[in-house]
Write a protein that binds this DNA or RNA. Sequence first.
DNA 1: CTCTACTCATAAGGACGCCTTATGGATACT
DNA 2: AGTATCCATAAGGCGTCCTTATGAGTAGAG
Lengths: 296, 296
Amino acid sequence: MMKLPPLAAIRVFEAAARHGSFTKAAEELGMTQAAVSYQIKVLEERVATPLFLRMPRQVVLTEVGARLAPATTEAFEILQAAFAATRESADGVLTISTIPTFAATWLVPRLGHFQMEHPSLAVRLQSTRDMVDFAQQEADVGIRTSKTPWPGLVCHKLFNSHFSPMLSPALAASVGGIKTPEDLLQLPVLDTGDPWWTIWFKLVGIENPQLIGDRRNRLGDQHLEGRAVLAGQGVGILTPFFFKPELEQGQLIQPFDVVGTDVHAYWLVYPESRRNVPKIRAFRDWLLGLIGEVNI
Amino acid sequence: MMKLPPLAAIRVFEAAARHGSFTKAAEELGMTQAAVSYQIKVLEERVATPLFLRMPRQVVLTEVGARLAPATTEAFEILQAAFAATRESADGVLTISTIPTFAATWLVPRLGHFQMEHPSLAVRLQSTRDMVDFAQQEADVGIRTSKTPWPGLVCHKLFNSHFSPMLSPALAASVGGIKTPEDLLQLPVLDTGDPWWTIWFKLVGIENPQLIGDRRNRLGDQHLEGRAVLAGQGVGILTPFFFKPELEQGQLIQPFDVVGTDVHAYWLVYPESRRNVPKIRAFRDWLLGLIGEVNI
DNA sequence: CTCTACTCATAAGGACGCCTTATGGATACT
DNA sequence: AGTATCCATAAGGCGTCCTTATGAGTAGAG
């Protein structure tokens, strides 16, 4: 594989050949005529052949130059097209890596709104429990939970993790309504192993609550638990923020205002280096604006 | 026209994408792995999109990167091919710009020999009376006459311009042979206006020779005059070097050893900057070698 | 026929791009 | 566990490449 001449020189040659003028080429490339002259000379020395004949008021390609020019033009057109396409495709698709819970309960219902505001942006959701690693995953932004911000990433705190018992109206009615925290202990709980229970009951003065129900694997996915609660299968301890619509519409009841809080918080994150990428700014502004309005 | 990212970075990306490895790419390009890493980062920042996912023991293209890679490879292959072809065509054709006389009388009969020694070289002759201007003419070497070397050009002196009267044997016999310079004055001279006559006759002690014959336009082309002399049309004053074969074979007679010399000399010239181009070296070595042997 | 305008060439000087060396972190293989 | 291999990063220096400034040559205009 023969080594190519300096690419900068080829670039300059291409423009000069196209214009038949060093001066015009310099204009196009945003440099001085002297620089063009220099680069052409470099290239001519490199191929050990004159590429232009210097006529009084113009330059014309030599035979060798004339054979070279179309190929270089073609090559640069290919690159041009490829990078233009890249720009489009890269700018036009926003990939969000998010926790399933947040995706299902909050983000998905509102994505339509985002699309309306940014019709040229396509959104791709990566719903995964794993922490996003921007070095190994093809994502633009991530939504994840953590106690502290990550170094090297821009981290916007969305809200603290908080929770309170919830159940369906029918289930509540089955025990004549929930008046005191103790009333909850009569009903099956969806995941007795969830540490949130002990925290919450402690907040209302109950130290060792005897919970009824199965010890399921929440696996950190509140969304499924929420569905089960909605179906009246038991009492769940959920994040009110995620179930606001259901609470407002009465499909779900939060009997007590007492909410427990977790050291974990929800964060929007993305690489420092990409803070100014338009689609990322757009999503950040939209998300923070909406969260700010709702203002949990 | 969108501005392309730095070409060096694209070049590196192409190799890295092809190998799926920064280290391998670095080897191919003859640089360090750190340099590759740097360039990829530059490119990624430029397109504001990761192009590789950094996996444990390898890198793999992102979607955007994968779309970009084939195009870049294609573009570089085109350039590669174009420059390879250029090299061939530029190296394979030697263009000689020469004075018609030298071409016709000396060079052309010997070019076959040069071709034998350099079968891969094609020779193109530009036979013109004009001085070669390497900036405006597509020539590799020139053969021209001049009093002094040209600045900026490599100039090999071939021989001084020299001359002596010549005629055909038949013409000489028609006046009973040429014994003294005065005998020449009985015969028609092909160009009475040629200044060489007065110089030569002066050398043999004749100050104001009364020449018979027409005042033609030699136009500096000895070749045609030589043909006329061979045909017995008159006496010419010619450069013995150019008519060596005819003299040796007796088709032409040089009655006197006295030769006039001119301030002009014959030179082989080519641009300083191209002194090391193989085809030019080949021609120079061949020509100087041959001239040296003949050793005028 | 001179003067102007436009071309490209060249020299000098400086900035910053790019590459190198050196090191560290991470992971797979033995 | 230890080693080898991969990529990332920091620091630093060299060299490329660009700019400014000037010159030479020619065409076209007055």
